[in-house]
Design a protein around this nucleic acid. Structure first.
Lengths: 182, 182
DNA sequence: CGCGGATGATTGTCATAGCAATCATTGTTA
DNA sequence: TAACAATGATTGCTATGACAATCATCCGCG
């Protein structure tokens, strides 16, 4: 290896560079292994992620902006993912009582059903191609290292959690203080 | 947390699922941190990856198919990346002497210069957001776990390496029979 | 109050990448 | 050697997602 001619022979073999490459290769190949299961339901990876995050959230709902923060998508990307999912009846939009600019994406019953089935298969895939290949010590070491990095590069990982209580109280208040405008 | 109503309360908290989520979150947020450096040269992540793989290869060249195998791109995707890079003078195409269907993407001098500069900055980014956050023990544990997974999900990680000797002998013996094994 | 800036969401436009079809070449088999 | 299957690469078509502009609403300050 490393038969590069030139003066900067070691530059492209820098261990930090290969570490990043290994992370990238592993993740992209791993997600590729997950595609058949998702594709069977004609869902893209982002659609799956949005459904999953909704399923995990209180009241099965998240604000568009929070979805954008939690995922790697822009707000316009979220708008379109939710458009597609809403067309298929898997989520619905609900306007926010306390801030009429905002809307929630809410998992429907059909969406809940689909994501539940899908997650079961998905967990099997994860086990087959990822977690099942490692001893629990290896896995724990991997995860704690990843957590250190994640906490630094993605502080907003749980944006919007706990909105349900706020939404409920906002609803109650908006009913109490009767519409005083138009 | 986990105030999910329903019968499958634990399903979305399965540790394997959160492990996969952590890997995905970490990688996508990490690559997002790398974008400013790449964007400064108006390169997308895939363009960067292709340039880097060429720079690492013997004779600064790879077959289109090998590029496709090494990256997560389809062959048509590779065609288009190389189109763009060739338009900017960073790579050129060379037809293969031993198989006239094939072509090589070859790094030009300008491409070599750009990727060299870029990798220096990129390594600083990696250090800042990834490897520098971990002790060397943590990093080694992370990498060896990733390697186990990578070797399982992406066996073709080094497809096309060692083509240079074959290409050279093909050039020399272009009138003789040249074998081109896997 | 009412103006001005900030924020949540959507839309127009564009670049990117996958799939399927196509073309050229190679290898295989009868 | 002639047919035919397989391979390398490219192109047409389409879907996806980012950026910038836009619209509506909210909040702060005089």
């Amino acid at each position: 290896m490393s038969m590069n001619d030139g003066t900067d022979a070691g530059l492209f073999d820098d261990p930090r560079l290969t570490a990043m490459g290994l992370l990238a290769e592993t993740f992209t190949a791993l997600t590729a292994k997950m595609m058949p299961t998702l594709g069977a339901s004609r869902l893209a990876a982002t659609d799956f992620e949005v459904l999953l995050r909704l399923a995990r959230s209180d009241c099965q709902r998240l604000r568009m902006t929070d979805l954008a923060t939690q995922t790697a998508l822009s707000t316009s990307g979220i708008t379109r993912v939710v458009d597609r999912l809403a067309d298929r009846g898997l989520v619905s939009r609900e306007s926010c009582a306390s801030d009429r600019r905002g809307s929630f994406a809410v998992l429907t019953g059909a969406g809940r059903e689909l994501i539940t089935d899908l997650v079961r298969s998905h967990v099997r895939d994860i086990d087959r191609w990822f977690t099942g290949l490692l001893t629990s010590d290896q896995l724990n070491a991997l995860l704690s290292a990843l957590r250190l990095v994640r906490d630094e590069v993605h502080p907003g990982a749980t944006a919007g959690s706990g909105e349900c209580a706020a939404a409920r109280s906002a609803l109650v208040q908006s009913l109490a203080t009767v519409e005083n405008e138009q």
